[in-house]
Structure formats: C-alpha cells, structure tokens
Amino acid sequence: MNSRLAILVKGELHRLHKYNLTSVSVLVALIWGVFLFFLDSSLDTMLPFVLVMDATMMSIMYVGAVMFFEKSESTISTMLVTPVTNSELVLSKVLANTLHNMFASALIITVFMIIKDVSINIPLVVIAILLTTAFHTTLGVFMAYYQKDFTGMLVNVMIFSFVLFVPSVLFLLNVISGPIWEAILLINPIQAGQEIILAAFKDYEFTYKYYFSLSYLIVLGILGYKYFVLPKFQDYAVKQSGV
C-alpha cells in the first residue's frame, strides 16, 4: 500500500471513530452477541447469518453514513484539491470500511469461539468477511453517489435487502429450496457472501458453489469498481463542491 493510501485509510478509520460509527458498530456487535448467546439450538445457522448481515447490509450503511457526513461538510471538495487521486480516495473508503467491519465481526467470532466453543476456520472466515465487506462497501459507495440524503440511502438499502437479502435468508433457513433457487441465487452477491462465509463453519461441503461465489465476488467487485464506481466518483465529488 502506498503511503498516501495508508494515510487516507488511517484518516477514514479515525473519522469512523470520531463520528461515532465505531461505537455504533461495537454496540451492534454486542446486541448480536447477546442475542446469539441465548440462542442455543440454531447457533450454527444464526452466527453465519449475523456475519453475512454485518458484511453486506451493515457495510453499505456504514460507508453510506461516512459519505453523507462528508456531503454535509463538503469535505470531499477539499480532498479534490490535494495530490490524492480518485482511486486512492475510493480505495481508502473501501479498505477502511472493510477493516472496520472485520473488527466488529472479529469481536463476535472471538466471543463465540471462547464462550460457546463454536468451531470456525479462521483463515476462511477472514477471507470471506474481507471479500464480502469490500464488495458491498464498493456497492455502498456507488449507491451513495445517487442519494441526496441518508434517508434516501436507507430506503435503497431496504429495497436492496428485500430484493437480494430476503431470498438469501429464506434459502439459508430452508424456507425456499431446490436447484432452481440455488441457480438463481448464485448471481446474488449476498448469497455469494453467505456461501463463502458458511464455508468457514464445520460440516460445510465444498462444491463448485464455493469457488463460483468466491470468483464471482472478486470479478464482479473489480469490474464494478473499474467501470462504475471509479469513473463516477469525479462527477459525484464535483457536485459536492457546489456545482
């Protein structure tokens, strides 16, 4: 990582803390922790569900919140007149939000590994959370470009959840099942995230679905960043300067 990107990531993490988003994140992790602590029977299903939710919906919300704070203070205009490149600015948000989310997820995982003796493959869960969060943060950055306020962003996240998250959860809970749903859900990034997160838990059977989901998130993430998120950033940032 170049030094300027490192400075930007550090700055983003500092602001996440200063604007109380880290506190919110820890609080949410604690609430989930308490909820899961009293849930003995379906812990194996619910813990991955919480991790998926944190890495997908919550990632979009956090990066949306950060960008709306920036919008309200027009600070992005100042960033535009520094030697920082647009790609460094976007990447710093993605990296900082991913690390931030990893921290919250790590809290939950650690507590459950110690208290509930849950067996998790650490390298696999770390890769899965990092990848899923990075993808959804990038998506959140793109969604924030087109929203005037945070309420608008929340509405979009709700729609996004309804369309993509609910089917994925219903499938996880076996409410919907079968090969057709399995095939349809393969192109759902939340399902892809869920698939690779589940792989870190015991009794997961590695099939083509894991490798497809892993590749899907990587390829779609890179293409989305290169062809949508980065090219649109300049327009978004210029609008924040009052144009």
């Binding site: 400075i7 602001r15 203070e73 600070t75 205009s77 100042t78 520094t82 030697p83 300067s241 009052g242």
Partner: peptide, 23 residues
Amino acid sequence: FEMPIHFSKMTALENIEFFLKLY
C-alpha cells in the same frame, strides 16, 4: 473555498495534520 470546509468532529489541529500528511 468560499465556504468553510472541515471535519467538524475533529479538532483544528487534527484537521490540519491530516491534510498536511498528503503533501
């Protein structure tokens, strides 16, 4: 710029030190 542009929940020094490191 005409309008003041800063991170309001950071101190003046934190604001300036952050930007300083970029140059």
